[in-house]
Simulated assay, not measured.
Amino acid sequence: MPALLALGLELELGRIVPLERFCELLRGERPPVHTKPALQGLIAASRKTLSRFPLTITTRPSGYQLTGDPETVDCQVSDALVRSAEAGARTYNEPAAARLRHALDL
Rank of each mutant, 00 (worst) to 15 (best):
I57F: 07
L81W: 08
A85M: 10
L55Q: 01
R101M: 10
E94V: 14
Q65G: 03
S46P: 01
H102F: 10
K48P: 00
L5V: 13
L81C: 10
L11E: 05
A38H: 05
G8F: 02
L5M: 07
T67M: 09
V73T: 03
P32E: 05
G63E: 07
Q40K: 14
R60S: 11
P31S: 06
V17G: 15
Y92D: 03
T58Q: 07
L55I: 02
V33M: 00
R52D: 12
A45D: 13
S78I: 03
L39D: 01
K36Q: 07
L7R: 12
E94H: 14
A89N: 03
S84A: 14
R99T: 00
S46L: 09
P95V: 00
E24L: 07
L5R: 03
L26F: 08
K48M: 01
A103K: 12
S78L: 05
L81V: 05
D74I: 02
G41L: 08
Y64V: 10
R90V: 15
R30Q: 09
L100G: 09
V82C: 12
Q65H: 04
V33S: 05
I43C: 01
A80F: 01
L25M: 10
A38G: 04
E86N: 11
F53D: 01
L106E: 05
L5H: 04
V33I: 01
E29T: 07
A45M: 06
L42Y: 07
E24K: 13
E12M: 08
L104W: 14
I16A: 02
G88A: 09
P31C: 05
H102M: 13
H102D: 13
L100T: 12
L100K: 13
T56Y: 04
N93R: 11
A98G: 10
